[in-house]
Design a protein around this nucleic acid. Structure first.
Length: 461
RNA sequence: GCGGCUAUGGUGUAAUGGCAGCACUGAUGGUUGUGGACCAUCCAGUAGCAGUUCGAAACUGCUUAGCCGCCCCA
């Protein structure tokens, strides 16, 4: 007989085992609840899209579209691709569903897996998750400030501190065109001294040359036309407003005038939250969130002239960075209570003990076996249970069970009807999700009871 | 996508080209029983495919995957 084949997960993908899956769920709950508090409802788009969505949206010359997209085919039909980023997909959904005609600004939150065919490395995978915010129809700098404030507040909420905020402006579309021309002319003059990669970019997107880390390029870049040289007054004013907003909110930032994003659709504000832990800086900057404004994108994708600004964060990056900082992301997903029995073949009875506890909100697992009680208790402990509910022994007869605290090694014989109360003395109930809102009592609303607004400094005072 | 390093039970590790061993974990049992200990027994491995060799976990090639660097990015 030939050996069984062994299977491996595809390169750059991961299995989220229960501990990690629980941590991801907890992280999602935190981010999503915050997004809702900011007024960004969740949108969920397909994992597959037509290739053109990203070619048009992200840009033909970008690395993502150039060589990182997964092609999806069925029966020889091609043209589909695994979603490599969120914004273009959200714009497609916005236009296809006519949401661009809804009251503006139009806001969305997403939390979705993304796929890029890149070499896996530290905190970099081929399937990874991103959370993101998109805000359409708000040309004001306030919208740019808000999404940065969101990320900043999120990181504060989860206790993540090892980051630095970098921002820049890359001008509106006309200015960007001017800058690209100026840079193109400048770099063309120094073409021979540039690295091979940069030489290619001179023609495809001269802006990206600024991003090069090659020492030979850095020298030339130092003498290149500055973004600020060609920025129009509106761009300068917009960027000043962004900086002013951040300052007044007490958000620390650094203007990095060479900061350029890898996606072609950005205009004006761009931002990156970069990890500062030296452990993660060995291979250059790793961004835990990054975003910017994309005022021309909706129009380019066939919609009206609708402005947009957004931010996306790497869930995996945040997760590992939090772990690096020693933050516990979620409790262990184990059952608190174990139902064991001294009688064989009484699964229904064990279940009838477990179910009322489950309905009451406790996490309860059942030992199915007819093993000696000793083994069942040992097993309960190894499964992480804190309480054992024992039935089928001499003490626990006639409608009684034993509730035993496995940590304290104390137990009490309890009427069946009182098990829920007795268990509740030892372990907490877990929150139960509900489908419907609980009825609200209008009398509960107490305007102004939440305290005073935070004190903000205003330089105009 | 390119380059370097790596791959031994579920986990962590040993074996100079010559019997794949140890520890943890897991399972079963230690007289119808109250537990993590202890004792006994058991399950389980050289990533995959070829090659060199009397003989390969070890040497060679290819494949797959991981880590690191490049590229790029969340």
């Amino acid at each position: 007989m030939p050996p069984m084949p062994t299977y491996q997960r595809p390169r750059g993908t991961r299995d989220l085992l229960p501990d990690e899956a629980a941590a991801m769920d907890a992280l999602q709950a935190v981010v999503q609840a915050r997004a809702l508090r900011y007024g960004y409802p969740r949108i969920s788009t397909p994992i597959i899209e037509n290739r053109e969505v990203f070619v048009k949206g992200v840009g033909e010359g970008s690395d993502i579209v150039g060589y990182e997209m997964y092609e999806v085919g069925q029966r020889g039909e091609g043209g589909l691709t695994l979603r490599p980023e969120g914004t273009a997909a959200v714009v497609r959904a916005l236009l296809e569903n006519g949401l661009h005609k809804s009251p503006q600004p139009i806001r969305f939150f997403y939390w979705e897996p993304m796929f890029r065919g890149q070499r896996p490395q530290l905190m970099r995978f081929r399937q990874f998750w991103q959370w993101g915010l998109e805000c359409f129809g708000a040309p004001e700098a306030a919208a740019d400030v808000e999404i940065i404030d969101f990320a900043n507040g999120l990181f504060a909420e989860v206790g993540f501190t090892a980051f630095e905020l970098e921002i820049n402006t890359i001008g509106d579309e006309p200015c960007q065109a001017k800058l690209k021309t100026a840079l193109g002319e400048y770099f063309a003059k120094h073409r021979d001294a540039l690295s091979a990669q940069s030489q290619r970019r001179v023609d495809t997107n001269a802006l990206r040359v600024l991003d090069s880390k090659e020492p030979q390029d850095r020298e030339i870049i130092a003498g290149a036309p500055k973004l600020t040289d060609v920025l129009c007054d509106e761009d300068k004013k917009h960027f000043a407003e962004v900086q002013d907003g951040l300052t007044r909110l007490g958000i620390a930032y650094k203007v990095v005038d060479t900061l350029v994003r890898g996606l072609d659709y950005y205009t004006r504000t761009v931002s990156e939250f970069v990890l500062t832990d030296p452990e993660y800086r060995k291979g250059g900057d790793i961004a835990v969130a990054a975003g910017g404004r994309y005022d021309g994108l909706v129009r380019r994708m066939g919609g009206p002239d609708l402005t947009g600004t957004g931010i996306a964060g790497g869930v995996d990056v945040l997760y590992y960075a939090l772990k690096q900082q020693g933050v516990t992301v979620a409790r262990e997903p184990r059952a608190d209570v174990y139902v064991v029995s001294g009688q064989p073949d009484d699964f229904a009875d064990r279940t009838q003990i477990a179910n009322p506890l489950r309905e009451a909100g406790f996490t309860v697992a059942i030992d199915y076996s007819a093993r000696p009680l000793e083994r069942q208790l040992e097993s309960a402990i190894k499964h992480g249970a804190r309480i054992a509910v024992i039935r089928g022994t001499a003490e626990a007869a006639g409608g009684n069970v034993i509730v035993r605290d496995l940590g304290k090694k104390e137990q009490r014989v309890t009427r069946l009807a009182a098990v829920v109360t007795e268990v509740g003395r030892h372990v907490p109930k877990r929150p139960r999700p509900t489908l419907l809102k609980p009825p609200t009592n209008p009398d509960d609303h107490e305007p102004g009871a939440a305290g005073e607004a935070p004190f903000l400094t205003d330089p105009r005072d």
